[in-house]
Design a protein around this nucleic acid. Structure first.
Lengths: 204, 204
DNA sequence: GGAATAAATAAACACCGTTCATTATCTTTG
DNA sequence: CAAAGATAATGAACGGTGTTTATTTATTCC
């Protein structure tokens, strides 16, 4: 009985088509400008069809997020190569920043926009970011345990550095940093230097 | 000829009514759930009337932001009372955090949502946040000049501490911090302690 | 008081996410 | 193989959004 298997496969393929189209459009135009109708147009199906595979837009976004977090984890895997844990920390911090610059719209829907965390609230899992988060947490835990950084505990360390970098990125993506009247072209380099400086600062 | 003056006054009063209603509703329900039609209902005018006083929703939001930044500046004025500049720094950092917790929806539209920064992009001013920003910048400048903190320059100092606190706040408001699986009830206290720890860390 | 001006609105436009009754396609059974 | 049943896809609609326009209502000026 290969039929039910084929149906499963076709269902999965359709979800793939939808997610792929969605990601492409999100990357190109940003979350807010992409509608279910647009996505349906792109894959040449009716809008209603999408609702046969996703119960609502949030559920679709959840899959898109998962994909994006996969990208981030791959980014880490490629760029965090050092053996020394302090070097790994700096590589990780800069890789995170670089990712946010290369995939601004993905970063937006991973870390800034409200949706789909409403849906996730009940799940209490939010498994999506876990791999990427673990990358940072493991490094920080090792740093704290070896007393290489000036933090009281691993959780404070992990969230502090995450918050620091995310703070810069999101203030920048949302144009709030504009108030500092810095040269816009020099901004990425400036932020990068701030991140580097922070990593230096926290070393014991 | 008091007529033109009265007309001006009436126009200003109408804008006040609109902004006041908008703020109330934003605070109560959040930016995304408030529509022009809702606001029009509240002030008992037709939706189209609002467009006689604001060219679009972004322009209205700009005024709402101005109001919110006024609130923040007042918050600073009330809470940053110390004479010692390092104490002022800690007071300011905690006041900023407390403001974000007391007025979550305002913080959202001041620092996180995309609108109305699209509109502002041309202005290049974004005067709204300047008073609040200056508060921080002045303190950090003094700290750097007196070599009380470990930053290479005032701008790095100012943006670093802002990014750090904003990072925590926005990760929390957007539920991304959930991935750390901390106790939700203990979170505000935890974040507060992280902020305090950071302020200690940067001291020379 | 009547013409000119200004203010307010109802109705419409073009979108949006989502639902539902209907149609088309495929699978199973007699 | 054809008919019946299940599944997939859709067109049309619902109630919502921000915004525009033609029309009506109110005010000012002569």
């Amino acid at each position: 009985m290969g039929i039910t298997e084929r149906k499963e496969r076709e269902k999965a393929e359709m979800r793939r088509r939808i997610v792929d189209a969605a990601i492409d459009m999100f990357v190109a135009e940003g979350y807010e400008k992409v509608s279910i109708r647009n996505i349906a147009d792109k894959i040449e199906y009716s809008p209603a069809t999408i609702y046969l595979y996703y119960k609502d837009k949030d559920e679709l976004l959840y899959d898109v997020q998962a994909e994006a977090f996969g990208k981030l984890a791959a980014y880490f895997k490629a760029k965090v190569t050092a053996a020394d844990v302090l070097e790994r920390l700096e590589q990780l911090a800069l890789a995170y920043f670089d990712f946010s610059q290369e995939y601004q719209e993905l970063y937006d829907l991973m870390f800034i926009i409200k949706a789909p965390m409403n849906t996730v609230e009940e799940d209490e899992e939010w498994k999506n970011g876990l791999e990427a988060f673990s990358y940072l947490r493991d490094i920080m835990t090792e740093c704290v345990e070896k007393k290489l950084v000036r933090f009281p505990d691993p959780m404070t360390a992990t969230l502090s550095i995450w918050a620091f970098i995310h703070g810069f990125i999101s203030l920048n993506l949302r144009c709030r940093i504009k108030i500092a009247q810095l040269d816009v072209l020099a901004l990425p380099a400036f932020v990068r230097s701030c991140v580097k400086h922070y990593v230096e600062t926290i070393k014991a």
